[in-house]
Nucleic acid binder design. Structure first.
Lengths: 334, 334
DNA sequence: TTGAAAGCGCTAACAC
DNA sequence: GTGTTAGCGCTTTCAA
């Protein structure tokens, strides 16, 4: 029977290097008061034994675990999945470890956040999470830094990083007008977030400035099947251009338009620039929120806030940009 | 300035209930030797103060953290993202917390696993991870239970849960033959996993049994653009039916077929049954690996292995099933 | 049935 | 520049 030898402890490194445990700790954490000679000896010993500090013990002692809680919703949405992947990578680069929970329902979120607190996370990142109310409350109670990503409905003292949805709406309006559209519709999602309202508001406001108004509007869950069943009604309004709250809605709209009238359809714009948008079968013009930058900034903010016992609040807005493709090229209408 | 009051410690509950810390611990963990009366008092006090045990401290003491490491690749693949989501949910139900890392490259994986070990995870789940070699080695060295999901190239003493790819291949062959195909091709991915090889092998073997052989074969990265550029060559072989290693390849193949010859194309089958497959624009027949079951079993296995200091190895195979859609209906060819 | 005390592995204040 | 010691918050023998 295999004697299950425990992981190497700092004590054993100390023994091998003929030195005390504290010196090991200091040498390995780069304390300047350690002589070069001993540092080398300690490092050699550590390497030889394959010593890796026990981060749980360190966390207990330091009151700082290096763990960051991440609350996320609906990973079936490729946009969320991609954001999560970027977050994980960028956290890793800062030597932070993500404890991930899914908070799709109110008690799900409540539950997730409770677990996170129990694990003494250093900070919490809530990624496009509904029920941010609960999360905000829990983080406030537990004095944990919280960063909302792509949501800013929290109170004034909550940090967030999000895209400028309002501006995105107006960029889209300009693009459609430039490409010759003269009548417009909006395809909304079923969420009631401020982010989502801003998209529409930015869009209609810019239209108004140019002397146009919405001739049609519909709403649907962010779900291909439901969106397709709603689409015909929206198309029936005859608008020359339609802005969709989300790529999922846009794909459904394109599919519906294709089957209804194969030889002409409105200009269509989506939101999120998911990888599908680039597929030739869709060639969907879409707003890119610059997730790369958004996640970088989020992680940097989280990193900065660790330890900063509620030092400051940062509220950062990232500029989105439009990726124009075939779905809004003037000749796609006939 | 807000006196940052620490989280509630078991000591404070003890004080409020006029009892010792040990009794609090026992009462809350359901120790049978505690009198009903004190238990009630302790529970009341705990609830009143909102006490949540510090899981980091408990982890240090118990040598068991309740944290499970999850190593995953390529969350842009919706199949992986969905699997991760299910894993997280099912781990949560078992009161386990997932520490997630992305292991896309060899040193990425190496790095991830090192972090996991430092955090004293109770077990590791590797989800469709390449570089499982490194992971296997690290878990063996650290004596951590490891479960490979959808990979079984590890040594004999490594547990895994995976789909029966070989059988899936033969199910697909039968389906295509039933639907009238008499010549066949295979569209392979760029991975060299046993799983992937099995799909093809199961397919060709069943074809052989029925007296057929492959008339065409191509390979591509799992990437829409690359797959589309390879597709024409494959279509040129004139096979009446094509089995793809993956839905991504299948979508690209469908797109390519549509543009090349709008009025007739081979029967096409994918693998993973991603949500796109159900969209009417694709209506792709695809193999469903039963992720729901696969993840359940994986989590149960992980749960069972925690503490079981390398008690046993479990190697479980989940039956896949075919979801037939329009892409293989006989009339789609002409 | 409950309390006192030790200790998980680490780091940091305080000696020297 | 390095060692000694205490303590993070919890559970769990061992005593009572």
């Amino acid at each position: 029977m295999d004697k299950l030898k425990k992981q190497v402890r700092s004590f054993e490194v100390a023994e091998l290097a003929n030195i005390s445990r504290s010196t090991v700790s200091r040498a390995l954490s780069g304390d300047p008061r350690i002589s070069e000679e001993t540092r080398a000896r300690v490092e050699a010993a550590a390497a030889k034994l394959g010593y890796q500090p026990n981060l749980i013990a360190r966390g207990l002692k330091n009151q700082s675990t290096g763990i960051v809680g991440v609350v996320v919703t609906d990973l079936d949405n490729p946009y969320h999945a991609h954001a999560l992947q970027l977050l994980i990578e960028k956290l890793g680069a800062k030597r932070l470890a993500p404890l991930v929970f899914v908070g799709d329902t109110a008690e799900g979120a409540e539950n997730a956040i409770a677990r996170l607190m129990s694990y003494q996370v250093d900070a919490v990142i809530a990624l496009a999470a509904p029920f941010s109310k609960q999360i905000v409350a829990a983080c406030r109670a537990g004095k944990k830094p919280l960063i909302l990503m792509n949501r800013y409905d929290g109170p004034d003292d909550v940090s967030f990083v999000c895209g400028d949805s309002h501006r995105a709406g107006s960029i889209v309006a300009d693009h459609l007008i430039e490409n010759g559209a003269t009548s417009f519709a909006y395809f909304a999602g079923d969420d009631t977030t401020s982010i989502s309202a801003d998209r529409e508001h930015g869009f209609t406001q810019r239209l108004a400035e140019k002397g146009f108004e919405l001739t049609g509007r519909a709403a649907s869950r962010y779900d291909h099947a439901q969106a397709m069943s709603v689409a015909p009604m929206l198309l029936a309004c005859g608008a020359e251009a339609i802005f969709c709250a989300n790529d999922t809605l846009a794909f459904a709209l394109l599919d519906a338009a294709r089957t209804m009238s194969p030889f002409g359809r409105p200009l269509i714009v989506g939101y999120d620039n998911s990888s599908l948008a680039a597929w030739p079968a869709y060639a969907l013009t879409s707003v890119d929120q610059n997730l790369e930058k958004m996640t970088s900034v989020t992680v940097e903010t989280a990193h900065a806030m660790v330890g900063d016992a509620h030092g400051g609040v940062s509220r950062i807005v990232i500029e989105p940009y439009l990726v124009a493709r075939g779905s809004t090229s003037p000749q796609s209408r006939t």
